[in-house]
């Protein structure tokens, strides 16, 4: 079990001459949900885009160092659901079959999709267009699409931050169930989200950003926010985050 899904070696990244992170080293643990926590603007999204080889683009983004990973094993879920407005919910979830039919076994995929839709409470919405769905439902379809893309590494860029508090909790519970035993790197600025879902939690902070804190939690997810363990770590993480902000 020496498989390393993602390893960053001395990775630096700058945007418009501003160094976002400098000589960053990081190794992702397989089959766990790792949360990368950090304040807005610290470069979390850039890091994910860099790992997925979606960055650097244009003249203003520059990077150096090595990202060891197999991009053909990566799927990516963004803050925006990115549903295609001309496709039904089901067709959006099955997007991989349109874009890369060689990669998938359609019969199997459709069966999995139907299964996922009923698990996610999306049954009956298969033929609806994205504009006919609520924000929470759209994000669930996006999650279904991400899972059906069937890659071993899932990158998530603040996937629930556009949702209202209650829907967000719902989505976290659902994700905890569906992402179990998958290799996930979830980027968030929400301390509670990290504590509910993270099996490993890292804090990325500072300018240029560094990993300033690491926590491994073995308790099952999704965790209850009233759990004493959660409350204990909450204070600790909050201090770790605030230290960077106010000092």
């Amino acid at each position: 079990m020496n498989y390393t899904p993602i390893q960053l070696e001395n990775v630096s990244f700058s945007y418009h001459e501003t160094l976002l992170f400098d000589h960053l080293n990081f190794t992702l643990t397989p089959n766990k949900i790792t949360c990368l926590l950090g304040p807005s603007g610290v470069g979390k999204s850039s890091l994910l885009r860099l790992i997925a080889k979606l960055a650097p683009v244009g003249k203003e983004e520059k990077s150096s160092g090595i990202v060891h990973t197999d991009t053909s094993q990566i799927t990516y879920m963004a803050q925006d659901d990115l549903l295609l407005p001309w496709l039904s919910a089901m067709d959006n979830a099955l997007l991989i079959a349109e874009l890369n039919p060689a990669q998938c076994d359609l019969k199997n995929l459709v069966r999995n999709a139907k299964d996922l839709f009923s698990k996610m409470g999306l049954r009956g919405s298969e033929n609806k267009l994205p504009k006919q769905l609520s924000g929470g439902m759209r994000q669930r379809v996006a999650l279904a699409r991400t899972l059906l893309t069937d890659r071993s590494i899932i990158l998530m860029d603040e996937p629930f931050s556009g949702l209202d508090a209650l829907t967000r909790l719902e989505m976290q519970t659902l994700s905890a169930k569906l992402l179990k035993d998958r290799t996930v790197l979830l980027v968030t600025h929400d301390l509670f989200e990290a504590l509910r879902l993270g099996q490993e939690i890292y804090i990325l902070s500072g300018h240029p950003a560094k990993i300033t804190y690491r926590l491994i939690l073995d308790s099952p997810i999704p965790r209850d926010l009233a759990d004493p363990e959660v409350i204990h770590h909450q204070a600790e993480i909050f201090h770790a985050l605030a230290k960077d902000k106010f000092l």
Binding site: R49, A52, K53, L54, T71, S72, I74, T75, Y76, A78, D80, L82, L84, W86, L95, I96, E98, L99, N100, Q103, T149
Partner: peptide
Amino acid sequence: EQGWLDLAKTMNASRFKTFWHIRIP
């Protein structure tokens, strides 16, 4: 929309597929 193109890229879609299924519609 850049996000859609990124999505197609992470799905390893060919240039033609991206054009046909995303850029044209």
